[in-house]
Design a protein around this nucleic acid. Structure first.
Lengths: 150, 150
DNA sequence: TCCATACAGAACCATTTCGGTTCTATTTTA
DNA sequence: TAAAATAGAACCGAAATGGTTCTGTATGGA
């Protein structure tokens, strides 16, 4: 099955905590561990990745912690997942540009289309912001119209 | 990263071989192995899954083999992937209905939305047929309008 | 009749990846 | 200067993945 890693799931869970607290709220790793029910080491590890990717900004030392570096409406699921799990790509063929020969590329007549498919999935996730995540789309049968966030 | 298993990739590769040969074409596993450049055992294993899922029908014995049980335009990527990899679900929470407690569900404020997100991705894949796979959408920047295939 | 072909199904194993922990450094402030 | 808090990397067991191999069953032709 197509699966998200647990850590990416944790990443989203953590980011939604920030989103719910609103822009400017600061949480330490241990704060979030108790809030989320996840283990401290795991929270630490995940926050570091989110921070490295620029989604959170960090402050060291006493009273330090993390906070969103952008508004919740400007952070997409695609970014959170990519921050934790790496680039979103269904097949290995398209992970890095060149030099990545899957060995059957000469037999692979559909290779050209994979890029398009990957983009379609990526766009699906890029169309969902943290803001949308924290307010359940009540009664919605499908996703609301996507506004691309540059 | 979000990743398709190699075997699912193989499944799609094999199905496109059938699609290109057109409805009614019969291939044996060894035929496909040499055509695709994949190992015979792997091709065997994958064809069995596709057959079990009803995408291919099989004929045993001498001159036997596999053929598409539906037209290429009526088989979607979603079906092929599900046949090989199992149901498409980003998170474990929604794989089976009940009795699947992730342990943090009480802390998981976004759980309700995962169903919607999973559906969005599934629809993306369900909107791409084998027929579309074998004729590259020349110059297309995005996917053509999706026609739901029941 | 009998044997080669070809699918069906399951078990099996090595390798990789994942989930999670631990350890050491660096920064900051009371 | 000591405690709080992030930064970074190494490490390890468990699970999933990728392949292979083996046994069984159906089919058709010599």
């Amino acid at each position: 099955m197509i699966r998200l890693t647990k850590q990416a799931d944790y990443g989203i869970l953590l980011m939604t905590q920030f989103a719910r607290a609103g822009m400017g709220a600061v949480f330490s790793a241990s704060d979030l561990a108790s809030r989320s029910g996840l283990s401290l080491p795991m929270v630490n590890k995940t926050l570091k990745l989110l921070s490295r990717a620029g989604l959170l900004s960090s402050q060291r030392g006493v009273n330090g912690g993390y906070q969103m570096s952008r508004d919740a409406g400007a952070i997409t699921l695609e970014e959170v997942i990519a921050a934790v799990d790496g680039p979103i790509a269904l097949t290995e063929c398209h992970e890095h540009g060149a030099g990545n020969d899957c060995g059957i590329s000469s037999h692979c007549p559909t290779r050209l289309n994979w890029g398009i498919i990957n983009d379609a999935l990526r766009d699906s996730l890029a169309g969902i912001t943290l803001l949308q995540m924290i307010r359940p789309f009540l009664g919605a049968k499908s996703l609301p119209a996507r506004e691309r966030v540059a």
